[in-house]
Design a protein around this nucleic acid. Sequence first.
RNA 1: GGGGUCGUAGCCCAACGGCAGAGGCACGUGUCUUAGGAGCACGCCAGUGUGGGUUCGACUCCCACCGACCCCA
Length: 812
Amino acid sequence: MVDKWLPVWDRLRLFEARDDDSRERRYIVDMFPYPSGDLHMGHAEAYSIGDAVARFALMRGYDVLHPIGWDSFGLPAENAALKREMDPREWTYANIDTQAESFKRLGISFDWRTRLHTSDPEYYRWTQWIFLRLFERGLAYRKAAPVNWCPNDQTVLANEQVIAGKCERCGSDVTKKNLTQWFFRITAYADRLLDDMAQLEGCWPERVLTMQRNWIGRSAGAYVDFRIEGHETPVRVFTTRPDTLFGATFFVVAADSPLAAELCSDDKRDAFNAYVEQVQRMSEVDRLTEGRHKTGVDLGRHAINPVNGERIPVYAADYVLADYGTGAIMAVPAHDQRDLDFARVFALPVRMVVDTGEPDPNETGIATHGDGVLVNSGPYDGMRKDEAIAAIAADLQGDAHGEPATTYRLRDWLLSRQRYWGCPIPIVHCGACGEVAVPDDQLPVELPVRGYELRPEGGRSPLESATEWVTVTCPSCGGPATRDTDTMDTFVDSSWYFLRFPSASDHSQPFDAQLLRRWAPVDEYVGGVTHAILHLLYARFFVKALHDMDYLDFTEPFTRLTNQGMVIMNGSSMSKSRGNLVKLQDELASYGPDAVRLTMLFAGPPEEDIDWADVSPTGAVKWLARVWRLASDIGRAGVGSDPATGDPELRRSVHKLVHDATAQTDHKRFNVAIARLMELTSLLRKAIDAGATDAAAGASAVREGGEALARMLSIFAPFAAEEAWELLGNEPSVVSAGWPTTEPSLLVEDSVTCIVQVAGKLRDKFEVPVGITEDELRERALASEAVRRTLGDRPVRTVIVRAPRLVNVVPG
RNA sequence: GGGGUCGUAGCCCAACGGCAGAGGCACGUGUCUUAGGAGCACGCCAGUGUGGGUUCGACUCCCACCGACCCCA
């Protein structure tokens, strides 16, 4: 069946978007796959959903762009290449071909002209071009930053190569090492990334918006400058609680920050160095865990609290992060749990300055956070928390000891990777000129094909080992220079791919602004929740930055977002090690693409996880067989007849089901829509078995229903739908037939069932004309035998009438 | 600790604040059949996690608790 229909679809060019079409357009994008092997069950679910959305839009008469590409740079290709001693290209492009073939055999309605791979020089040329535009704007810059370092292998490790603090390959403890790294200044867009979410409200899943908000983590508060005894410049800290300033009893700087080393007094130097070494072995997650035993070291210095002149000791500790805020905090143990935990370990004073009515933290060991009245705070005593926050922040500013401020949890995006299989950073380092951009007309900076080592000694970037490639002349002064040897995070590649789809083969520009005016932004973006934070945030950042450079006329890339759930097996996610892996190709071999797609969609709403053990591809197979038999039994009956001549009773039922299925599909309730299609199947089966096709009116109505079924089925099970369409005596393709329409006159009923409740409980029901008046209905309800029996001698207090469907008699 | 999502038959899931059941799986009975693991027909099964509240009326709205998953700390 697959082999029969694929060539037909190709020949009819059903799924090609028309850039100059007068129809309204729809841009529907499934998050592009990573070519890790063949497609798996998760892909089948995601793309079944996306395809239903795309095909529905197409059937409804939109000009649809439904593209496909591959996110084809990344570490797994390098690992596979190392293991098999091959070029990462071979592994990558072989997998892409396999996946492309699988997509076709699944019947996904991609416009294959959009096909792109982020690892093609034709693509990454433009990734580099965008990088340079960001570089020109100061949105890409270099600074020293800590990376994971394996001292044994002498190599940099990605976060995912660090398993529980150990090197995944040799098992030794991973430490942090400072390296100069490339960053994107995404923090410059923190406010807009946050504020523009207002327009996504209701269109993106609530939880994704929440996750993004949390990730950006805007908090309002104040900067406070503390003078440090024996140190020239004051140290600035950020606090969300300036109202607790009088409760600051000590001061903490991040142990691994340069500031800590700077502040450390000479007699504490040894203890400090030992502590820092210990800290560098820990992961950030561990460091931030609340409730962990607090550690730190006294730096032998004092800070001066600007509001009361108090001398407070300065500590270095690991629960403060060097790159969050200013890397230093004022510690208020009474009102911050981690400060309190630390104070208790080091026997530091705890002073309550906001009376929240909760028990004293000194005794309970529980810091208080609530609202209350200030105490022990000099002139601010008696103020409420909010009042005090404003007053103290303002006074600090007045005295030049600080200012109101906003900070973010979001940090700049570290994009450089010491890897081979990624997009080279188009920068040349020149002794005389510094960082020099590779001129646009020399792009792409292509990866060297030979003369490099994937894992060079000494933890250098693989590209550094390609000495011939590295050595260049400076584009600016012509002197000797070297190429930047890092490659970009693959999230860079995927932050703009949806801009290139409409002009995927255009070699003159990254994207076509003219075409994007027609297609962008993406109407429907379908993908896993795993990308809910980083990918979506990065893509939003790119679009905003490109908008600010006047390349784009929109500021949000994805108008609507659907996160499909995962396909799990027996309650947990599939994995080889759990032994619960279900192979897509096995399922396809057993049940066929249509049944697998149907099973995915019928299992529940798209957002929910699907436990493959709970669902039944066999059920889908059986239903498809019923549809096939139905179409076959209808055959040419009623062919060419005017639907209007069809049996009105049957038509009424058919149109009602079509109407419902349409509404449900529109809301992506595919499971419910498919249930309606199943009902339609049963309805038509019964009609045929009752001899409907013997009369012209019946045959006409059955044909109308059968054709509607085939058309609607085509968005879920496209091959079976074509087959049914053909059995019904029609020319291919069912896709060209479009979505069935309904006649409003057939949807209005002339009588409905009225339910009669007594005290909210169902007691009687009867058929009434739709136009019945409230008075009439009340009469009939009160006259009901069942109602009178239930009421007994109780008087009637009120009668709620909702004509024509309901009457509720409320006894006194 | 804060936030989000969600708890409906043995299972997966439906139900504008108005008849708790649309659809499917599993199970059972019958029927067709040389046969059935196919088809068809019929049947079986819950009062919606718990406790309050709002309402004429609550699976649906509000509060608390229990449990599951996710995010942030």
